[in-house]
Design a protein around this nucleic acid. Structure first.
Lengths: 223, 223
DNA sequence: GACCAACTGTAACCCAGGTGACGTTCCGCC
DNA sequence: GGCGGAACGTCACCTGGGTTACAGTTGGTC
């Protein structure tokens, strides 16, 4: 719950979304925000924080859960360091839409909507960049929707793996989490990953999947 | 391609998103926009228009298609009159993300990002309302993602029907379109709708589904 | 070093839904 | 009033993945 120190400011400035802004504006935003720490498995907010605003992962990893009808919660994404998210937990008066849980010990930069508005008073460009961020998120999720409706399960798995590795070569996910995200059972995931491993496309680890042949996965996605 | 006339301005002002804004601001936005007409089946843009901005349906009905990997296009939503959408067809340099096609003869209000920025110069509140709109869309699509990953196919169908009827009691969709949105074959849709019809939950028509017992559908969604 | 929790591998059975193809009914247009 | 295209209803076969339950591993913790 502290303002970022010098080191952390530098890390934040390196995040693409901030890096793309006018330097003074980014600095102002960073100054207005707060850092919070969460241990693995901890719930992100809930202490009366404003629940609408921005979220940026500095260290660790956040799991995003979304409320589905019938008491279910689905994990829809995992945010790695550097990811930025515009969030509005309560909008339109409905129940909480998004639940954010730390998957590992994490340091997260948060910026409430109020702080955002204040910063925007001095730097009107904030609004444009916020809109840009939201547009970007919209396209990401839209893409997700397309994948979910159009692709058969195995292709969905491949798409998810590619999305999770993000050129890192490794996706840090358990097969159980993958199953939840893809919307199938862990058994199915396990079987398909086994196939892929036999073909030499991936190497399986404990809570991780190493992608050896991304091109092959892309082939599966394309059908 | 004309500015809205008096009547149409009134219709636009009645759309919730505009209605929620400061009247002068909404008026300025409406004045800055353009109306376009499209016949059923026509492609919405493509004549070199700016492709980022706002879209509001005045009359008719728009189908939203999203590009999925492997040359596939999935219909993800149908916009009824009154729906507003922030769109950014090309963002991040990728290929076209969203394709908009008129499902019936339609009149659509469009507002380019440039016009939006100009209007925002006089009425800074525009940005806040735009962000609000985008947040709202984000939650809608997020909800869609949750439904798609967590729910079994029949529940997805029920959820879609409820979403499409919007308290009108009738969903104007063909079974083929439903199939595409739910991500199953038309045959499956046909069977399930048949079941529901036998139970008296819905009445089937040509290119339409009349919802008689929304509560029963909600039950299916909840599982 | 021992323990516990989380994660991974696997089995037999079953049913939902996909495939591909066909005839029929409905709507709008000429 | 007839025609063409779109939407609906149905068939037989078959694969894929769900279900449930258990055993073997890994890694972190005390």
């Amino acid at each position: 719950m502290n303002p970022p120190d010098e080191d952390q400011r530098r890390s934040l400035m390196a995040i693409p979304w901030f890096a793309g802004q006018a330097p003074e504006q980014a600095a102002a935003l960073i100054k207005a925000g707060r850092l919070i720490r969460r241990g693995a498995g901890e719930w992100l907010h809930g202490e009366g924080d404003e629940e609408t605003g921005l979220l940026a992962v500095l260290e660790g990893r956040l799991k995003l859960y979304c409320q589905a009808p019938g008491e279910r919660e689905v994990m829809i994404a995992i945010m790695p360091p550097g990811a930025v998210m515009g969030q509005s937990a309560t909008f339109g008066g409905g129940p909480r839409l998004l639940t954010v849980i730390a998957a590992a010990d994490s340091i997260v930069f948060t910026l409430s909507d109020r702080a955002l508005r204040q910063a925007a008073a001095d730097h009107p460009g904030v609004w444009r960049d916020l809109a840009g961020l939201l547009y970007l998120q919209l396209s990401t999720i839209l893409q997700l929707v397309a994948v979910l409706t159009a692709l058969p399960p195995r292709a969905r798995l491949a798409a998810r793996l590619l999305q999770l590795e993000q050129n890192l070569g490794v996706a840090d996910v358990s097969q159980g989490d993958l199953a939840e995200m893809v919307g199938v059972t862990r058994k199915a995931i396990n079987g398909w990953l086994g196939e892929m491993a036999r073909k030499g496309w991936v190497r399986l680890g404990y809570g991780r999947v190493e992608i050896l042949k991304p091109a092959a996965l892309r082939g599966v996605v394309a059908g």
